[in-house]
């Protein structure tokens, strides 16, 4: 589903991702972990071209998205993203947030878009909030709406960048539960997270980044019980 080959990303002189190669199969869930500044967000943002890779190739569904012939907008329609700070549209209702892109970008009718939206809102447990504005929602509710908004575009891949880091502790679970439900649907997911328990439970593989290098790429039970590198060991000692 996603194949990354020798990906390099630099910001000016600063090389943030260094020769990263990996693959995420269809329906696979990978957790991306690592210390602050290790390049996790940047890696994720390269997959939907919010950052343009400096070198290397990324294939999504067999299409080389780093090729100049590639339609960036088409790629993004197919790759949903959930942000740490939700980024809901404050001037649109919950319903408006969910129907905007499907109508504008996919060209769905209002009725069709609303039907999909309501179905998704029910799935994330927020159908009664359809007509509210985001400012009236709690953090956990906002993030569930943000997940539903990304899903409304019916993407094949979902990217999550620390979806629970900005939440009060009591709201983390409701968001993780929604994500767990999503895993069962078989959608391909890449999740940057500091929730090690969650990563261990839902991920098929863990990618450990450090200093821009992909240091480890292993199943969670292997990674968490017997990390190969010193850096990963030190990291796990600190966070576990």
């Amino acid at each position: 589903m996603i194949r990354i080959e020798h990906l390099v990303k630099s910001f000016g002189p600063l090389e943030v991702l260094k020769d990263i190669s990996t693959e995420v199969g269809s329906g696979e869930v990978v957790a991306i972990i690592g210390p602050s500044g290790s390049g996790k967000s940047t890696l994720l943002r390269c997959i939907n071209l919010l950052e343009i890779p400096t070198a290397g190739h990324i294939f999504v569904d067999g299409v080389d998205i780093t090729s100049s012939k590639c339609d960036i907008l088409k790629v993004r329609q197919n790759v949903g993203m959930v942000f740490q700070h939700f980024n809901l549209f404050p001037h649109k209702t919950v319903m408006g947030n969910l129907t905007y892109a499907p109508m504008k970008v996919r060209g769905l009718s209002k009725a069709d878009a609303s039907e999909i939206a309501l179905d998704l809102l029910t799935k994330v447990g927020l159908s009664e909030k359809a007509d509210q504005y985001p400012s009236r929602l709690s953090g956990g509710q906002k993030q569930r709406v943000a997940i539903a908004r990304a899903l409304a575009m019916q993407p094949d891949v979902m990217l999550f960048d620390e979806p629970t880091s900005a939440l009060d502790p009591e709201m983390v679970k409701e968001v993780l539960d929604v994500m767990k439900g999503l895993v069962k649907t078989g959608i391909t997911m890449a999740i940057v997270t500091h929730e090690m328990g969650f990563a261990r439970e839902v991920a098929d593989r863990v990618l450990f980044l450090d200093g821009g290098y992909l240091v480890e790429d292993a199943p969670p039970d292997v990674f968490f019980s017997a990390p190969k590198s010193d850096r990963a060991q030190q990291f796990l000692e600190k966070v576990l």
Partner: peptide, 17 residues
């Protein structure tokens, strides 16, 4: 907030809309 731009872009919304 630049997150508004990023959210729009991540949904595949073109520049004008």
């Amino acid at each position: 907030d630049k997150g508004q731009r990023e959210a729009s872009m991540s949904l595949g919304v073109p520049y004008r809309p």
